[in-house]
Design a protein around this nucleic acid. Structure first.
Length: 266
DNA sequence: ATGGTGGTAGGACCA
């Protein structure tokens, strides 16, 4: 059983719905996490996804943030959760479900604005609380994926100009240490399990023709628990939707698993 | 790369 999993910051699902539907039609992923939907739940285009062959759960708000999980019909979404213990946050950045026997946690990590700001402190605190949640939650799910817009470039290899970005937001050591703290619970960055082209990014600023010049960062990640990672057969960035008219500033990231060795538990 | 754009709004904020 091949399972194709993707994560995409769509920067307004209202604007990007046609892109997402077209992309689902061509790529046919089994599981998709969306971030920055920017839609209240009552405005979520649930019917459009059902018509496309997907079940959806979502947690949104007006103007900012908002996350959703899609699963191809036939994969049930169970144990859905949009809030975690010890964090009362009106910002809708978290959604988790159990799909095909795998725990899927979809995150829109706080951006943080700039090192040293209140938003930066909120980011680090938010990551600490999410990490504590994962540590407890993963005891129940040996097969566990954390996906999303992490707003952290894990390493200098994920940055177009590491010198310019040194100690800046998305690249600072405390942010990277927070990401390492999650990985040290027992997760692999699936992208780095495979040989990749240098200068592979998932986000390019809208300004300064950054995409054309490949001035970007890799901040959209698919982390798989160690047990799951052994079944990962590929992980890549799909740059194509970033070339479409009026695109999101992020490209979708995708990974595939061959779960033939596992007994199907859904 | 330090806002040159874009989204949500309908001015300012967020990224």
């Amino acid at each position: 059983m091949v399972l194709k999993v993707a994560s995409w910051n769509v920067n307004s699902l209202n604007v990007r719905l046609p892109h997402v539907l077209q992309w689902l039609d061509s790529e046919k992923p089994d599981i998709v996490g969306l971030q920055e939907t920017k839609l209240q739940d009552e405005k979520f285009p649930y019917r459009a996804f059902v018509d496309q062959g997907y079940e959806a759960v979502y947690s949104g708000q007006k103007t900012y943030n908002g996350v959703a999980l899609l699963a191809k019909q036939g994969h049930e979404l169970r144990k859905v959760l949009t809030d975690i213990p010890n964090m009362e946050d009106p910002q809708r950045r978290i959604i988790a479900a159990e799909i095909a026997g795998i725990r899927i946690l979809n995150l829109y990590v706080v951006n943080g604005q700039a090192v040293g700001t209140d938003k930066y402190d909120y980011k680090l605190d938010w990551l600490e609380r999410v990490t504590a949640f994962i540590e407890a939650d993963m005891k129940k799910y040996p097969k566990y994926m954390i996906m999303g817009d992490f707003n952290i470039a894990p390493d200098d290899a994920d940055v177009h100009d590491p010198e310019a970005w040194k100690d800046q937001i998305l690249c600072s050591s405390p942010e990277r240490a927070a990401l390492d703290g999650i990985k040290e619970l027992g997760f692999k960055d699936t992208f780095r399990l495979f040989e990749q082209k240098p200068q592979s990014f998932s986000w390019w600023d809208y300004r300064a023709a950054a995409f054309r010049r490949n001035i970007g960062l890799r901040i959209d990640l698919l982390l798989a628990s160690d047990q799951l990672a052994t079944s990962c057969t590929g992980s890549w960035v799909d740059r194509e939707p970033r070339t479409w008219e009026r695109p999101s500033d992020h490209a979708p990231v995708i990974c595939e698993f061959d779960l033939a060795d596992f007994t199907q538990s859904s």
